[in-house]
Design a protein around this nucleic acid. Sequence first.
DNA 1: TGTACAGGAATGAATATTCATTCTTATAAT
DNA 2: ATTATAAGAATGAATATTCATTCCTGTACA
Lengths: 191, 191
Amino acid sequence: MAKLEKRDEIVRAALELIAENGFHGAPMAMIAEKAGVGAGTIYRYFENKDVLINELYRDLEQRIYTVLMEGYSPEKPVRERFIHIGTAILRYCIANPLDFRYLEQFHNSPYGVVHRRDRILGETGEKDIYLELFKEGLARHVVKELPMVVLFALAFGPLITVARDHILGFVVLDEALIGEIITACWDGVKR
Amino acid sequence: MAKLEKRDEIVRAALELIAENGFHGAPMAMIAEKAGVGAGTIYRYFENKDVLINELYRDLEQRIYTVLMEGYSPEKPVRERFIHIGTAILRYCIANPLDFRYLEQFHNSPYGVVHRRDRILGETGEKDIYLELFKEGLARHVVKELPMVVLFALAFGPLITVARDHILGFVVLDEALIGEIITACWDGVKR
DNA sequence: TGTACAGGAATGAATATTCATTCTTATAAT
DNA sequence: ATTATAAGAATGAATATTCATTCCTGTACA
C-alpha cells in the first residue's frame, strides 16, 4: 500500500467509525483495524487523536465549500443564489451521509465548541456564504429585517433536521421534495 | 439530607456536568462530588451510568411536555396553536439552558440514536404535539402539502439553531424577537 | 429516660476495564 | 548492510463499578 493510500485509509476508517458511533465508539485500535494498519502506524501520520479529528474536519469543510461553490454566480438574484446553496447542501448530505454525521458529531462536542469560539465573528464555510447573501438581501429589502444569526437559523436549521431524518430513514428526499423544502425555507426568510 | 433530595442532587449534578462538558466530561466521581455524595451512593439510586442518563432524559422530556401544554387550547386555530408551542419552546430553552444543552448532547449521541429507533413512528413529546397540529393543518389546507417530518423540520429546526446561538451568546432573544422568529417559521410552513 | 441493638443507607478505597500512546521487534526498501 | 517503516504487544492513565466497612436512625428494653 502506498504512503498516501495508507493515510487515506486511516482517515476513511476514522470518518466512518466516528460518524456512526461517535468519538467514543471509535477507539484508535478500532480505527487501525478498520484501516488495515497497525495501531502504532496511525501515529506516523497523525501526532495524536485530536490532530486526526481536527484534520479530518478541515478536510471535510474544504471539500464541502468547494462543492457548494460549484456553479454559484454572485451576479444572480438573491433568491436564486439562496436556492442554489440550499439545494447543494441537501444534495451533498444525502450523497455523503457519513460526512454529514461526522460534522454533526464534531459540532456537538468539545472540539466544535472550541472551533466556534475561535471565530465568533470571523466565520468561514457555509455560514460565510449565507452571511454575504443575507447582507445583500437586507440591502435590497428582499429578506426580513432580522439579525444575521436568525436568518441563518431559518435557512439552515430545517436543512440539518431534514438531512438527519433522511439519513435515519424517516423520510426519502428526492429532487422534487428538496425543491419544495428549499422554497419553504425561502418563504420563512423572504420579506 | 432526605432520600429524595439526594436523588435530586445527583440528577442535578449530572445534568449540569453533562450539559456543560458532554458525557465524557462527566465521570461518575465528578458527579458524585458535585452532588455532595459518595461515589458508591449513586449506584443506590441508579443501576449504572446509562440508566442515570436515560432517566434524566425522560424526566426532562416529561417536564418540557408539561410546560408546552400549559395554556394550550386545541380549539384555537392552527396558526395560533403553532405560535403558542413555538414560543413556549423558545422561552423554555432560554430559561433553562442546561436542559436544552443536555437534550442536545443526548440527541447527538448513541443514546439518542437508540432512542429514536425505539419509536420510529410512535413519537412522543414535542414532536407529538406538532404532528397532531400539522395533521389538522393539512386537513384544513392551511399548511403546505409536505411530509410530516418535513413540516416538523421547518418548524423546529430554526428553533434549535436559534436557541443554541442564544445560549452561546451570538444573539440575544427578547420577547419581540421570539415573536418575529416564530412568525417567520410559520411563513415557511403555511400554505 | 437512657442505652443497646438492628437494619438500611452511605461511603470511598479497591478492582476491573477501556483506551491513547509508546516501544520493541520484525519487515521491506535502497 | 543500513535505514526507514510498520506492526502490535506492553504501558499507564482514566474511569465505571463493586464491596467491605462505617454511619444513621428508629425501636425495644431496662
